[in-house]
Design a protein around this nucleic acid. Structure first.
Lengths: 120, 120
DNA sequence: GTAACGTACAACAACATGGTTGTACGTCAG
DNA sequence: CTGACGTACAACCATGTTGTTGTACGTTAC
């Protein structure tokens, strides 16, 4: 997740894509839940699932690219920890959708100012 | 989204997969935002994006399978409207992740009761 | 009735995803 | 030093996704 000048937690489309894409898999969501509670090494995580180590390692890589987890090296182990700020950013985005529905438009208003604009 | 006996808004993995998968595309998120504010026909939506009608129609179908939008037929037009309850369900799920991080474990506790359990 | 409109879907190509196995390499234990 | 451990990544395959065009069919306007 990148914090930019135009807001405290604005993300571009590609970042949001990666976050939701990463969350669109049950194994990855399970990993997030576990490491959100307490860090765990990649190997320890891999033991939990009925798939190869390489598969789990790649799931972790997907979560890392999305910013949902971070890895911290401790000797030969890589400790995976959940990054709550990215989860919060995603939550906020969905909360904005709810607010639009409610009629209370937030900064999304700017995006929708041009009712006939064409978006590529 | 299916409401089951074990909770007021519990979803199975496949449903959550579909929701986040649907949200993992900028065009689809834009459609959600627009129809959350006000219903719009599929053709009207299609005019907004630089892609074929068929492509937009399929994006809407993905959103519909995920339960994020519903279609309502009016004559020969199909009016697409956002379904806020599904957005709320996704928001709640992410909020639970934040709560786990905070150390306040909710019903997720059951899922993590077995610290050495293997999940397929 | 007929033409235009709005929608749906099939078939196709290009690319992404999610699993596998195998290899490589740094780190720790003995 | 050497073997075992933990990690990373490439190659490969099956499947799914996202765009395209073309066709079909019900509904509305005239």
């Amino acid at each position: 997740m990148v914090v930019r000048q135009d807001g405290p937690d604005t993300m571009d489309d590609a970042e949001v894509d990666r976050i939701f894409q990463a969350l669109a898999d049950a194994t990855r969501r399970d990993v997030v839940v576990r490491v959100m509670r307490e860090g765990e090494s990649v190997t320890a995580l891999a033991r939990r699932y009925a798939m190869s180590f390489a598969a789990v390692q790649r799931h972790v890589a997907v979560l890392e690219r999305a910013g949902l987890v971070r890895k911290e090296r401790h000797g030969r182990e890589q400790i995976v920890r959940g990054d709550v700020t990215t989860v919060r950013a995603a939550t906020r985005l969905l909360e904005e959708y709810e607010e639009i529905w409610r009629g209370r438009v937030t900064r999304m208003e700017t995006l929708l100012a041009e009712p006939e604009g064409e978006v590529p």
